[in-house]
Amino acid sequence: MSTSTLDSPPVVDGPTRPRGPSRSMRRAKVRGAILRHGGLILFGLFMLYPLIWMAVSAFKPSHLVLTDPSIIPTELTLENFVNGWVVGGFPFWVFFGNSLVIAISAILGNLISCSLTAYALARLEFRARNVYFAIVLVTVMLPMHAVVIPQYIVFSNLGLVNTFIPLILPKFLATDAFFIFLMVQFIRGIPRQLDEAASIDGAGPFRVFWSIILPLMKPALITTAIFTFIWTWNDFFGQLIYLTDSSVFTVPIALNALVDSESNQGTGTLMAMSVLSLIPLLLFFAFAQKHLIRGIATTGLK
């Protein structure tokens, strides 16, 4: 299966490769394409069944969501969207806005801080580099529950509860160290001849970083952006403890407030709002992955 990925000619959204297959080959290709589409669609349906169920449930009357869980609804209604739209006196779009502000700031923060650090760790030469790199890794290893309380105490004593600062500032300080590691791995995949050539032409480290490395690591940057967006959008715990006022609630906090674990009320509204909350993620991903695919063609060894 893996080798076939390289020999299928009409490249659609990847960079094109000049080829000239014969007619019989082409017919085999068409048959192959149909098979692959069939397989991919079947597998996709299998993968997406739970989400389809969720989308259907969003339109069922609330008390039927769990008591009549068939995927073909007997009754359709918008009541779940109406009932779930307001949480804590604020309409859901406020939470979308808050989540968006946090997510976009976090993306900016991670892109800037992690790429700078990763470049130094992957390319510059200095003493104790391996030690720094080990520290980067160790900071990802401690489970969050062990540090969240000390961190909360710090931000709370600074009076920053109910602001977005505790959720955004750390991203500008590269505390999502996992992305540093990601970028280091990508930078190390870039041939060194490129920056050496530039260095010989007199470019300093920042020039090399800015005009050689950064454009070449676009896939890593986009991956970082995608992950940061999704993680921030879904981060529950951090947002729960720092944001207590419903005016600063984010999507996951508002979603959580729809369920009452004691009584199982509100499953219908949870389904409805979960479906809505997926939409920005899906749009962002669809947009970003286009760039993920187009990033490279014009660069490389020249």
Partner: peptide
């Protein structure tokens, strides 16, 4: 740690933040 972080927080990120309710 808090005092130190405060300086950084305010310097790096002064304007960002949500309202505290009215």
């Amino acid at each position: 740690a808090g005092a130190a972080a405060g300086a950084g927080a305010l310097a790096a990120c002064g304007g960002v933040g949500g309202g505290g309710g009215d």
